[in-house]
Simulated assay, not measured.
Amino acid sequence: MTQRNRLNWSGAAALRGTRAGAARGLRLAAEHVLTEARKRVPIEEATLERSGVASVDETALTAGVSFDTPYAVRQHEDMTLRHDAGRTAKYLERPLEEEAANVEAIIAAQVRRALRG
């Protein structure tokens, strides 16, 4: 007895779903990194903390997290500055490195979700 199966592959739809899931994952992952960075950003009046944004370029599938004050770079890079407990220089770099596995998992989960349905 011969058994036949038919598979209809919709590659274009699968790619669209994968791309949409990746974009959603990037947004969630960038927001996650921003949340973690805000926990460490030097704080006096919270201006630097409030300036943080997460952005996604869905065309290029890239994400960014940035802080936009005149002193954001100095606060990030100058290791000699003193900060309140729990607040530190490298407030963006360290959370990004430490959360890399979580970032990957967030993106992967959204791609899987998009492919399921």
Rank of each mutant, 00 (worst) to 15 (best):
L81F: 12
G21V: 01
L34K: 04
A85C: 00
L15P: 03
D78M: 12
G25P: 10
R38D: 08
R113V: 01
E45I: 06
R19M: 04
N102V: 03
R94I: 14
T59E: 13
R116Q: 12
A72Q: 08
S10K: 11
E98A: 11
I107C: 03
Y71C: 01
G52I: 07
E104H: 08
R40P: 08
E45Y: 11
G21P: 01
F67A: 05
G17W: 04
G17I: 00
R50S: 05
G52C: 07
A54N: 03
H76F: 03
G25N: 11
T62I: 06
A13N: 11
P70F: 04
G11F: 15
D57E: 07
R27Q: 15
V56Y: 09
R50W: 09
T59C: 01
E97R: 14
A101K: 09
R112N: 07
A37K: 00
I107N: 04
A85E: 11
A105W: 03
V73G: 00
A63H: 04
L48D: 09
T69P: 04
G17P: 01
I107G: 02
P42M: 15
Y91C: 01
N102W: 00
A14P: 02
T35H: 08
V65M: 07
Q110E: 15
A105F: 03
G52V: 07
